[in-house]
Design a protein around this nucleic acid. Structure first.
Lengths: 135, 135
DNA sequence: TATAAGTCCACTAACTTGGTGGGCTAATAT
DNA sequence: ATATTAGCCCACCAAGTTAGTGGACTTATA
């Protein structure tokens, strides 16, 4: 399951997608409109900024905004950043891979199935962008 | 990600699948062969028993065994039981559904995408059984 | 220089995960 | 009957994660 943090991130990003090219948006505006705890949202947006997805401006007229247009930002990127691995097992994760202890990957039925699940999921989230979340 | 508990459950169930129709298998044997902490495995097997997947016999010659043949037990069932929801959001879960607060499911792009992800995953795990994990 | 707005650090309560320990109960063998 | 075997059950625990909050600091604009 996606954490609440991830859900907040998507809500905020969707909001910022809708306001793309309208200048910086206040954290407080996003928090209010999307009903996200302000201080928590602050952390999330900062994390998205540090990852290069958002940018910000301080002072009056400041706020947050997307660094690229919504269709350039993949859903998979956001999930990996805020939520972590997309795969169901570390041993089949592309970005968070960890070797299985006491289990030979070459002869593990679970491993093989989980690769399929991963690919089926990636097929969707790697090809959808914030643009697709806007409706 | 699947919890370690889930991974242990699958290892144990795979082992029991291989020993299907060979009579009860000791917890201690499974624990040793699959390198699972014994007491933790005890809890897991008991849970699988209560859910009707396993059955057990006490006393000498006792142990655990599958109630049905491996091809009757779906991977999806085990995941839901030991790990919880398969969907990435409560509002798209079939077995653990919870309504979204502050978010209209009818007009939510994330919701729609996550239904697709859920279905892609279910397409795999609902059609695979313990038999498929045996290799 | 005042004000607005993001940045940064540190702390917290509640929950989950991955266990462990010890005694109880039921089935079997003698 | 009784000893032994093996699962059943309860309660507890440490560490980590989640979902936040509070407060001081920095930077940009008017």
């Amino acid at each position: 399951m996606l954490s609440k943090k991830s859900q907040y991130a998507f809500k905020a990003l969707t909001y910022l997608s809708e306001k793309f090219n309208e200048g910086p948006v206040l954290i407080s505006e996003i928090a209010k409109k999307k009903k996200i705890p302000l201080k928590f949202l602050e952390n999330i947006l900062l994390e998205l900024k540090k990852a290069g997805i958002l940018d910000s401006k301080k002072g009056k007229g400041g706020g947050y905004f997307l660094r690229q247009s919504p269709e350039k930002i993949k859903v998979a990127t956001v999930i990996r950043l805020i939520n972590g691995p997309i795969a169901m097992l570390p041993c089949v994760s592309l970005y968070f891979y960890e070797r299985c202890k006491n289990c030979n990957e070459k002869y593990c039925g679970l491993h093989d199935m989980m690769i399929e699940v991963r690919d089926a999921t990636l097929n969707i989230v790697e090809h959808r962008t914030l643009r697709d979340l806007m409706i």
